[in-house]
Design a protein around this nucleic acid. Sequence first.
DNA 1: GCGATGCTTCGATTACCGTCGAAGCATGAA
DNA 2: TTCATGCTTCGACGGTAATCGAAGCATCGC
Lengths: 231, 231
Amino acid sequence: MKHGPDIVTLAALIGDPARANILTALMAGHALTASELAAEAGVTPQTVSAHLNRLEDGALIRRRKQGRHAYVELAGPEVAQALEGLMGLAASTGQLRSRPGPRDAALRQARVCYDHLAGDLGVQMFAAMRRQGALSLGREGLTLTHTGVALMGDLGIDLATLPRSRAPLCRECLDWSARQSHLAGRIGRAMLARFETLGWMVRQPGSRALRVPQNGLIAFNHLFPQEETRL
Amino acid sequence: MKHGPDIVTLAALIGDPARANILTALMAGHALTASELAAEAGVTPQTVSAHLNRLEDGALIRRRKQGRHAYVELAGPEVAQALEGLMGLAASTGQLRSRPGPRDAALRQARVCYDHLAGDLGVQMFAAMRRQGALSLGREGLTLTHTGVALMGDLGIDLATLPRSRAPLCRECLDWSARQSHLAGRIGRAMLARFETLGWMVRQPGSRALRVPQNGLIAFNHLFPQEETRL
DNA sequence: GCGATGCTTCGATTACCGTCGAAGCATGAA
DNA sequence: TTCATGCTTCGACGGTAATCGAAGCATCGC
């Protein structure tokens, strides 16, 4: 009868408060243990274990056993991307979990989306790189141009040391706050890691928000300036 | 505790088979009556009515009463966009509702995404317009350039007759099959409508797939050629 | 080794919600 | 008015799944 991908299983998995809390906590990109997730979701460890079984069956998370700890992480960037998509819809329909406060403003400016930079600064970076010709949109998706390769060199990112995997180098990811694209993929991950190393951005414990010191913001704006003109 | 948009309600709404069928049926962009949706979802009218109540509370659909009929449509393009996002994740995790067949191939080539063109041809059009400089990505999102305005004129689309609304003229929409962006927004809607008027694409009853006659495909490819080179 | 910690499985309870039959309430046709 | 159609509300049934207590099973520290 119906064709195309089956969204019911996925949506049902996400549509439980405890599981949604788990997934949201994992959006920060760090692997968390089962007990940490229990505290995060507000349920007992047994309940979390049951949820992790279902999430793993649904290919939304991966579990790695290390000693007596079970580290949990999202199955991949696509999961984070789809979650951001849902958040975008929730934001547009005005369904906010909490009243907008300072935390939310910080989230809007810069946050971690699984493993890459999202928020206003993420969108700004993506737009600037497109404008500078560092990224090119071809039939096979987003690719890094020669300009982009040079830019990575200036930043101090050695492309040769990037992990070899089937994951795409560059990928677009839609932003729930800005409603525009930002850069995901292995390059996106490497760039965020570099920004953290440079001290331009600092992760906040227990939150997806990124703190951006003034010197970091200045350097960032210099490299990825905002577009002044628009039609 | 948690911040950001509340995705639980939305995901729970989508995560029911009957409701997912209803939403999927509405993705074609046409308004459907409650009884049509009942047949589509395979449940009784009472059940559909209950589901429509919940979907309306969740701001996923709108109901318009006309006589004794109740026409139902998606609340907006954002809903369709989020649904496509979920389909993308489902496709990437290999959760297909049916074995890939001819219908699915047609869906991948060209389909209706609520009110605009999606699928390979949609992605191809978006990429070609970016390359031709018809679309520009600025801080405020995607905008139509002078080149783009001229292109609309060549196509026979009168921008002045577009409905005035707060909806953006241009918007990106991620494609579940091609994993790249295609064009949504009021322009996207107008262009698909124009393609149908020109006979380049024909809606298939009861499906989101678009039939593309050979002369339509030739004309389309001439106007929005595929990119030959990539880095 | 032995206890402690962390995670998992099992079983039972409970609450929610999807479903439909029956009835109510509009609108349109005769 | 009267009947038919389409949709909705009400009430009840049934199944699913979320939750936790208790117990089992690894692993780590001592």
